[in-house]
Structures are given as structure tokens and as C-alpha cells.
Amino acid sequence: MIRYSLRCRDGHAFESWFRSGSAYDALRDARQVACPDCNSTEVEKALMAPRVSGQDAAPEPAKEEHPLAELRRRVEAQSDYVGADFVKEARAMHEGSSARRAIYGEARIGEARKLVEDGIPVAPLPFLPRAKVN
């Protein structure tokens, strides 16, 4: 995962996470990266400084668990991972042919959009399933 500082054509600055630099390029070229302020899809990377730590850097004080880490822990503990069967499972639960339960998995953006259009409540998670993390 990589975080980029971004700027839209109107100068609004924001940040977003991407799987890789090439994933960002593909999403930007497909006009899938939009400014949260004005919804412009004319977005470019902004100048950003890398985060570097050295051996002589002072240790950071202990922090509370990061909210995304807590969300991941709760989703993994309270939901069934269905992987690539997510769309099929979500639709089966909506149609009543499968027991309702909390699930998470993977879906292409078009498939997820179709679920929403069909009235099936889904939402993207801000992390990758552990099976997909290197």
C-alpha cells in the first residue's frame, strides 16, 4: 500500500491510499480518483516528503491502537471471510436463499455497484483482506 498526497485542478489537497503506484495511475486514467471537495477527477500527485526514521531517532511513545487496525480486528472477529464469493453470497442472503450473517470479501467495483443498485447494502473496507497482503 502507498499513500499519496493529491491535488485537484481547483487546488484542493487530499490524501488517499492505493495498492501501488501503477494502481493509482490506472485509477486516475480511468477517472476513478475524485476530489472529496469538488468531485473533480482531474487529479495529480502533490509534492510530499517521505517519512524516514533512523537508528538515532527518538523512539515514539506508545500509541493507542490505530482506528483502522481496530476496525480490521472487529471485522475479522465478527464476520465470515467469503473471498471471491462475496457477490454471490451477498445476493443469496438478500434473496433469502442463504442465512443472513456478516460477511466480507472481494468484488470488482462494477459488481459492487450492481449490488447497491439492486438494493443490497454493501460498503468498501479501507484495508485488504489478510489473504491478499504480502
Results as ranks from 00 to 15, higher is better:
residue 114 K to R: 12
residue 24 Y to D: 02
residue 49 A to L: 15
residue 21 G to Y: 06
residue 118 D to S: 14
residue 37 D to V: 13
residue 19 R to I: 06
residue 32 Q to C: 06
residue 54 G to D: 04
residue 53 S to Y: 09
residue 92 A to H: 03
residue 27 L to A: 14
residue 48 M to N: 08
residue 14 F to R: 05
residue 77 A to K: 13
residue 105 G to E: 04
residue 10 D to K: 11
residue 71 L to Q: 08
residue 45 K to E: 10
residue 78 Q to P: 00
residue 120 I to A: 07
residue 88 K to W: 00
residue 103 I to H: 01
residue 8 C to H: 01
residue 58 A to S: 08
residue 4 Y to I: 08
residue 58 A to K: 12
residue 108 R to H: 11
residue 32 Q to W: 03
residue 87 V to L: 03
residue 25 D to Y: 04
residue 1 M to A: 14
residue 107 A to V: 05
residue 21 G to F: 06
residue 54 G to A: 09
residue 71 L to Y: 06
residue 4 Y to C: 10
residue 19 R to N: 04
residue 72 R to N: 05
residue 121 P to L: 07
residue 42 E to A: 12
residue 24 Y to G: 00
residue 26 A to K: 10
residue 22 S to A: 14
residue 37 D to M: 06
residue 71 L to N: 01
residue 79 S to L: 06
residue 65 E to D: 13
residue 56 D to A: 09
residue 125 L to Q: 04
residue 83 G to H: 01
residue 54 G to T: 10
residue 59 P to A: 11
residue 10 D to R: 12
residue 117 E to R: 07
residue 91 R to T: 15
residue 33 V to S: 03
residue 105 G to I: 07
residue 78 Q to A: 14
residue 103 I to T: 04
residue 69 A to R: 06
residue 90 A to P: 01
residue 47 L to F: 13
residue 97 S to P: 00
residue 95 E to W: 00
residue 80 D to Y: 05
residue 25 D to A: 13
residue 66 H to D: 15
residue 80 D to V: 14
residue 75 V to P: 02
residue 108 R to M: 14
residue 111 E to N: 05
residue 71 L to K: 01
residue 95 E to Q: 10
residue 67 P to V: 13
residue 8 C to S: 08
residue 128 L to G: 02
residue 58 A to M: 11
residue 8 C to V: 10
residue 103 I to V: 15
residue 88 K to P: 00
residue 66 H to R: 07
residue 29 D to V: 01
residue 14 F to D: 03
residue 14 F to I: 11
residue 13 A to S: 12
residue 1 M to Y: 09
residue 96 G to M: 08
residue 114 K to H: 03
residue 57 A to W: 03
residue 7 R to F: 04
residue 22 S to N: 06
residue 75 V to Y: 03
residue 31 R to P: 02
residue 75 V to R: 03
residue 26 A to R: 09
residue 34 A to C: 08
residue 97 S to H: 11
residue 85 D to V: 02
residue 16 S to R: 12
residue 73 R to K: 15
residue 29 D to T: 09
residue 7 R to D: 04
residue 87 V to M: 01
residue 25 D to V: 09
residue 83 G to W: 02
residue 74 R to W: 02
residue 3 R to F: 09
residue 51 R to W: 08
residue 43 V to N: 01
residue 54 G to L: 13
residue 68 L to G: 03
residue 131 A to N: 04
residue 96 G to F: 07
residue 5 S to N: 15
residue 113 R to D: 14
residue 32 Q to S: 05
residue 40 S to M: 06
residue 37 D to Q: 11
residue 41 T to I: 13
residue 134 N to M: 09
residue 15 E to R: 14
residue 74 R to M: 07
residue 86 F to H: 02
